[in-house]
Design a protein around this nucleic acid. Structure first.
Lengths: 112, 112
DNA sequence: CACATTACTTTGACACACAAAGTAGTGTGT
DNA sequence: ACACACTACTTTGTGTGTCAAAGTAATGTG
């Protein structure tokens, strides 16, 4: 039985992951989805609907800004860039993630 | 700004945490809730409704078995014991958790 | 010209965590 | 005697995030 990254375990981390990718440079949905799959060694594929939900959530929260690319060929792409607000949100998300990991591991350990 | 263990980050881990406590010995709802709070240094308090939802889910899945304690005083307590099925579920949960941590951290890193 | 691939979007379902409120017994203070 | 705090379990209803499925549309390939 192989280990799994279930949807309940990924929950609450998708925003952080997307922000983290955009922090490396502007990108668009399809590319991010592919990168996530690659960089996780196929362990996790973000669902398209989830990804676009994340974009909408982050955009609403002014963590990212979207703009249409001027593709001369291929399908049109909607790029996103991370804002300063998004950068500090990313930082906070990572801190929360590290904190949560520690607490959960502590609860599993037994010792305080 | 203090770090937080949000409900979305705890999601999917509650079953594992409860199983882990029951693996240390039979216990009941209220006591587990208190222990979780203590052992996390007040960082996380499981909501009562959540806890009883977890019990029902685990019981349905035959990971735990409930029985009424014979309190001669105080409120009646419903104890739970972990089953063999529950023990292997716990093991699996912990493996998934460790795996997920690794994948998410890998996604945050950049390097594969 | 059918099919794969890139690329974005909408709709609806589902599971989990939780807030709020309720029931009920015991212990403590005044 | 009565209010209040605490232990202890339960039910109901709500919100959010993820996802499956399906759709639109353009380009590239055998």
């Amino acid at each position: 039985m192989a280990e799994k990254l279930t949807k309940d375990l990924i929950r609450g981390n998708t925003d952080m992951l997307v922000l983290n990718f955009l922090n490396e440079g502007d990108s668009y949905g399809y590319a991010i989805a592919k990168k996530i799959k690659e960089r996780s060694n196929e362990a996790y594929s973000i669902n398209e609907a989830t990804l676009y939900t994340v974009f909408r959530r982050l955009e609403k929260n002014q963590d990212i800004e979207g703009y249409w690319g001027d593709e001369t060929q291929g399908s049109r792409r909607k790029y996103y860039r991370i804002t300063d607000h998004g950068k500090s949100a990313l930082k906070e998300n990572i801190e929360n993630w590290n904190f949560s990991k520690r607490i959960i591991d502590q609860l599993l350990q037994g010792e305080e």
